[in-house]
């Protein structure tokens, strides 16, 4: 079971490569922001898997803290950095 959890964690870590590619390429700021949000979600999942694999309950707190703060970062992006774009972008 430990091996299974760790293998899943490794798989998730690999999928982050796709996220990084999008963060590097863009092209729009929203693409990059969403890619790092996906990155965060995957990191939360990796932390939960590691918590399960090593039986370290404290890692769930780490995952909890980031899951909460990621939402705040996303709001900061939308309200402060993206406000103009929303107004003039028809999409």
């Amino acid at each position: 079971m430990q091996l299974f959890n760790l293998a899943l964690g490794l798989l998730l870590l690999m999928t982050l490569g796709g996220g990084i590619w999008r963060a590097l390429r863009g092209p729009s700021a929203a693409d990059r922001m969403l890619s790092v949000q996906v990155f965060g979600t995957a990191a939360v999942a990796v932390l939960l898997l590691l918590a399960q694999a090593f039986g370290q309950a404290a890692l769930r707190d780490v995952a909890l803290a980031f899951a909460l703060l990621a939402a705040v970062t996303a709001v900061a992006f939308v309200r402060r950095a993206w406000a103009e774009e929303v107004d003039c972008d028809p999409e």
Binding site: L13, L16, V36, F39, L47, L50, F66
Partner: peptide
């Protein structure tokens, strides 16, 4: 931010 996440892992 992505670096920071990786760092915490």
């Amino acid at each position: 931010v992505a670096f920071s996440l990786m760092m915490s892992i």
